[in-house]
């Protein structure tokens, strides 16, 4: 399987550990990643707020690059996934298409709308498949209780994204079971992490993040995992702010999705950049990697 790799901004910058883990997992599963140094940012929802048609156009440019290479596109961020999927959809509106085409045609860019945008979670659960993934596991993760945290733009609006149920998704939990973890079901798993207003009103953003972590914890989660690096920023890098907002310690290790899979496929913590997290993952890691005999 070969896919056009769309790492997004964060995984190339402060969230580099997500890129490292993705590359490990794809190598281990025989997924070939084609690099596109001319991919631009997806706009992260902010460009969409400022100028919807511009946002569609920059993403259609990205999609056209993948189409020219004859590849579907792999995302590793819920927000990139949402923005690129919605660009595919909005481009079908004749009024939008006319304006976007007028901007792209002089650049020799054409898009026929054939590229499928797939998040790593979907590639792992559908294209690789849970059963095959399970066969590749060399280190089942010790039944550690993990709260999946999906990220809004992977799920909603469900009638436009055409994938999981927005209210009761199960792909991430299926994946967690396949790698030997125990998924935790809690309301917050489909809620918002607060990231979009982190710079608008930090106290409210942190309050929202804190509530979801509290909810995961109340349901027994020993760690959380997310397919979105923006959620990861809210839940991990800003967890100290969330603690202030909710008024108590949270101490919740938060993994990127491919880090969890990578551990089960035999990666070392160094290969997955686990030391780059703000909240230490040591206790969870010990449980996930303990020799089977000692469990």
């Amino acid at each position: 399987m070969k896919l056009a790799y769309y790492p997004g901004c964060v995984a190339q910058e402060s969230g580099k550990e997500l890129d490292m883990a993705t590359r490990f997992v794809c190598r281990a599963l025989g997924i070939e990643l084609a690099e596109f140094p001319s991919f631009s940012c997806c706009g992260s929802g902010f460009v969409d707020e400022a100028n919807e048609v511009l946002n569609v156009a920059i993403n259609v440019r990205n999609l056209a690059l993948a189409e020219k290479a004859g590849l579907d596109l792999l995302t590793i961020c819920s927000t990139c996934q949402g923005m690129l999927s919605l660009a595919n959809l909005r481009y079908q509106d004749p009024k939008v298409k006319e304006r976007v085409d007028a901007a792209l045609r002089p650049l020799g860019i054409e898009y026929r709308g054939t590229v499928k945008v797939k998040h790593l979670l979907r590639v792992l659960t559908e294209d690789v498949g849970v059963a095959r993934l399970q066969e590749k596991v060399v280190r089942p993760l010790g039944s550690i209780k993990i709260g999946a945290f999906y990220g809004c733009h992977l799920l909603r609006p469900a009638d436009e994204l055409h994938w999981e149920s927005a209210e009761e998704p199960h792909a991430f939990e299926d994946l967690l079971k396949a790698v030997g973890a125990t998924p935790v079901y809690y309301r917050g798993r489909v809620m918002c992490c607060g990231f979009p207003i982190q710079f608008v009103k930090p106290s409210t953003a942190s309050q929202i993040a804190g509530r979801q972590i509290d909810d995961a914890k109340a349901h027994g989660a020993e760690a959380m995992a997310t397919p979105c690096p923006l959620c990861h920023i809210s839940l991990d890098a800003y967890q100290n702010q969330a603690e202030k907002a909710v008024g108590h310690a949270l101490d919740m290790p938060v993994f990127h999705l491919p880090q969890v899979v990578g551990l089960a496929l035999g990666a070392t913590p160094e290969q997955l950049g686990l030391a780059r997290h703000l909240v230490p993952v040591d206790a969870a890691l010990a449980k996930m990697t303990a020799p089977v005999a000692s469990r």
């Binding site: 929802g45 707020e49 809004c152 733009h153 909603r156 609006p157 469900a158 927005a166 209210e167 809620m191 918002c192 607060g194 979009p196 207003i197 608008v200 009103k201 409210t204 929202i208």
Partner: peptide
């Protein structure tokens, strides 16, 4: 500007 564009309302 406090809207999180989480689309939970739309859902």
């Amino acid at each position: 500007w406090l809207c999180l564009r989480c689309h939970l309302c739309t859902e």
